Simulated assay, not measured.
Amino acid sequence: MKITLVAGARPNFMKISPIIRAINNEVSNGTSIEYRLVHTGQHYDKNMSAAFFEQLGIPEPHVNLEAGGGSQAEQTAAIMVKFEQELLKNRPDLILVVGDVTSTMACTITAKKLCVDAVHVEAGIRSGDITMPEEVNRIVTDAITDHYFTTSEHANTHLRNSGVEEKRIHFVGNTMIDSLCQHIDKLVEPEIWSQHQLSSGKYLLLTLHRPANVDDSANLEKLVSTIIRHSHDYKIVFPVHPRTRKVLESLSINSDRLICSEPLPYLEFIYLVKNAGGIITDSGGITEEATVLGIPCMTMRNSTERPETVILGTNELIGTDPQNIVPHLDNLIAGKWKKGGVPPLWDGKAAERIVGKLVSIYNRN
């Protein structure tokens, strides 16, 4: 069996790492698998890409397509052109894509046009918000995928409702949580921990990058200012996404409790997640990590593609209006946050299930 693994952006790396480990384990047990790792180059910043490969133990990609930069359309086109050339030179039995970034959609379309099977890890999740580029990527990818590896029963239901045959839906769990479980004892204290005298449970971790929260400078200023005013003596640690930094630098927000930093490598960032008193974010992946670690989490969005983090976990969906955060901060600081649980099969073994299923489907040796 020959597999081309696709990784393009930071969220992909935590999902692809356990799959590579599981493939290597299968090979060591005598299973015939060859894989080729393709980095599309969608994220090309050191902290957003190379450092993650190093920390997660991902081997050097066989090829980097260097298709980063440009508009959504330009990036999609560049990935498709270069990935087509890659597949023509090195044709696999299947490609494996993860998540919902531009690379996921672009590489799936390219493979299917060349009659190469595509399998999608983290298939079936839906936010219902078609204005999000990720939602378009999910819908298009799942419309043409051959096999669907899912993280929840919610995802299974979305796929069934869209007409996917039951035999092509494989509920395996969450490879993002595989990475969390594999590295939880290897976390690295970031420099800002001692620099700003942070202590466990006494700071909020803030991440924002979605247009509804950061593109309008007045809205971003109101949001950050509201968090500062209603977080009592908690420090606010804000690793600033490149998209957000441009807007944030134009604002006049002054507080000795607001600690801004560059984006952090995986082990340093998860250290901050694990030790936070609470998290405020508009990222889907962070809500999953917070749920498994039992950290209170507030999601600044009007919808989520990961409802299990709200229904079962520690996450609350609070919308994009900055005022909505006030009562939730009050509950958090008063110690009244709900107790969450861990969704089914989020046990650190999803990648093993994925590779085992692929072997049963594709391995003809």
Score class of each variant (00 low, 15 high):
T108M: 10
T108C: 13
T108D: 06
T108E: 04
T108R: 09
T108W: 04
I109P: 03
I109S: 05
T110R: 01
T110S: 15
T110E: 05
T110I: 07
A111L: 07
A111H: 02
K112V: 11
K112I: 11
K113M: 14
K113P: 06
L114W: 00
C115H: 15
V116P: 03
D117F: 11
A118W: 04
A118H: 02
V119S: 08
V121H: 07
E122S: 12
A123R: 02
G124T: 07
I125E: 04
I125F: 06
I125D: 00
I125C: 14
S127T: 07
S127L: 03
S127C: 13
G128K: 00
D129R: 00
I130E: 01
T131P: 04
T131W: 05
M132T: 01
P133L: 09
P133M: 08
P133V: 06
E134L: 09
E135P: 01
E135A: 04
E135C: 11
E135L: 00
V136T: 14
N137T: 10
N137I: 08
R138S: 06
R138C: 12
R138F: 07
R138E: 01
V140I: 15
V140G: 01
T141V: 07
D142M: 07
D142I: 14
A143Y: 02
A143H: 02
A143T: 09
I144S: 04
I144F: 11
T145H: 04
D146R: 04
D146V: 09
H147R: 15
H147W: 13
H147Q: 14
Y148Q: 06
Y148D: 02
F149Q: 14
T151H: 03
E153R: 10
E153A: 12
H154W: 11
A155D: 03
A155Q: 00
N156M: 09
N156R: 05
N156Y: 06
N156L: 08
T157M: 11
T157Q: 15
T157W: 04
H158N: 15
L159I: 08
L159G: 01
R160M: 12
N161Q: 15
S162L: 12
G163I: 06
G163N: 13
G163R: 11
V164E: 00
V164I: 15
E165M: 10
E165Q: 13
E166A: 13
K167R: 14
K167C: 09
R168G: 04
R168Y: 07
I169N: 03
I169R: 09
H170A: 08
H170P: 08
H170L: 12
F171I: 10
F171P: 01
F171M: 07
V172R: 00
G173M: 06
N174P: 05
N174S: 12
T175P: 04
T175S: 12
M176H: 01
M176T: 15
M176R: 05
I177A: 11
D178C: 14
S179L: 08
S179H: 09
S179I: 11
